[in-house]
Design a protein around this nucleic acid. Structure first.
Lengths: 275, 275
DNA sequence: TAGTGGTCTAGACCACGCT
DNA sequence: GCGTGGTCTAGACCACTAG
């Protein structure tokens, strides 16, 4: 399969010329594009995984689309199907792609039903999870304050889209959320666009702005409601609220959203599984 | 290797001598399950995984111990090493075992350093995570109330161990926690034992009571401090606290602990990664 | 029937930890 | 040097989907 790999664990013996100086360490032909230093050993399937991730990032395969079959990718990358499989296994575990037996492997999308609540951990104490009603209180462009700039990895003063919304379950205001998005990416984002769109915000971001969220990091605290929160959530000042701050990342671990949510947890709770 | 298998992924066809009734205990399990394709098809590696899990549950291999090598297990179960590998891969992903290249595969334990904070998601806002100081306020045996009995899957009125403790970071009381444990399992659990022991409670449970926690489910809320919590945490009544309720499970998804923690989140936060 | 992912096997060599 | 887990390959067959 790879008759010209000097040192990879392929069946074929080395033979060939005296390239053995580099023999004890790394690479296959794959990594030659990147400058390769000695002690960085990376398994083949990790390199394949990186290449596939690049194709996802570059938009060669878009969310919801079918990617080439394992056999095709094996041919393209000149490795065995098993190696491609292991790479895709990890991408699947990280929710970057979704495998469907008999059909193929698809790029993950926030449009499909099973992803609707992927990042919303607030569940009702009784009954099943419903999709909330959205009311957008404010949408405007501002200059990034220092704190926001740092979290989004942009410059202080850069344009950011600021959004304030209230989410209700069964007509009960439950979440007050402030969001900050890099203005450079979310150019045409307006209140109208947000109001028209029904469904998860991340699905809209994906379709309208080509930005797919792949993971997020949250920090939770208990806080007391201030006057603004109290009014918007129709509760008393000082009521305990669950403060959830989130940074979301797209391909390449690039931060593209910061949000601060205040969750009313009288009839809901934040669910988390530890393992 | 198996040139004559018509439709079963199992190596040996059942057959063989009639004297293998004992020897075929595991074997027949495997063959049988794999043979009844119609109603429930379970891959071989899943069956192997179940068998290994049984050995963990039965105590054949105890926390911290080395389990047989992949080759040995492959021989024992009469499957290929690759199949055993896939089974162990999943067990490793679920943190039931820990693989160490060059050494072997070990049963996971709460004693090792890397597991110290596995179930404690409260992190300091600045600095690195420290292990808290424990003060046990109360340890006693009570009759299980309905709510507790339901969560622990025991009968109302059964004996349960009730524990109240305060955990401090750098001398600052930060966590007030109530715990309920099935009395039948935690027989000799006393305040003295808890006070003597330094380190994670789950490590003590493992060593003293043979109960290893493998996963947990948490529900979070924001609440206001009542008089008792205020006094023990040295804060004002009504201060917002993060209420964390947890059910922990041992092998076989058996619930063996319920706890309710009140976290002071002025200088700490609950960290969670979404993916 | 064809194509895809899913499972299983067998054998090779690599990286690591210990003796 | 040896045994362990880790990587890679090759080929077979199974399960699922769709034309």
């Amino acid at each position: 399969m790879n008759p010209d790999l000097p040192n990879s664990p392929v069946p074929e013996p080395v033979s060939q010329t005296g390239l053995t100086s580099s023999a004890s360490y790394t690479q296959s032909n794959l990594a030659q594009s990147a400058t390769q230093l000695a002690p960085t050993f990376s398994p083949l399937y990790q390199q394949i995984k990186a290449l596939i991730t690049q194709s996802l990032q570059s938009g060669e395969w878009k969310p919801g689309e079918l990617i080439p079959s394992e056999v095709e990718l094996a041919v393209r990358f000149k490795v065995s199907q098993g190696t491609v499989r292991k790479a895709i296994d990890e991408l699947s575990a990280e929710n970057l792609v979704v495998r469907r037996q008999g059909k193929g492997t698809f790029v993950a999308t926030h449009h499909e039903a099973r992803a609707q609540f992927r990042f919303l951990r607030l569940k009702p104490d009784v009954g099943i999870q419903q999709y909330p009603n959205n009311r957008f209180v404010e949408v405007k462009r501002i200059r990034a304050p220092a704190e926001i700039a740092k979290l989004l990895d942009i410059k202080v003063g850069d344009s950011v889209v600021y959004i304030r919304r209230v989410q209700s379950f069964d007509g009960v205001p439950t979440i007050l959320e402030d969001l900050w998005l890099p203005g450079a990416i979310f150019k045409g984002l307006t209140a109208d666009l947000l109001n028209e769109y029904k469904g998860p915000m991340y699905a809209l971001f994906e379709t309208e702005f080509g930005t797919h969220m792949i993971r997020a990091s949250e920090q939770l605290r208990a806080v007391a409601a201030d006057a603004v929160a109290a009014e918007l959530l129709k509760i008393d000042i000082g009521s305990p609220l669950l403060n959830v701050e989130r940074v979301s990342y797209t391909y390449g671990d690039k931060p593209v959203e910061f949000r601060r949510g205040l969750y009313l947890t009288l009839n809901h709770h934040y669910q988390n599984e530890l393992s």
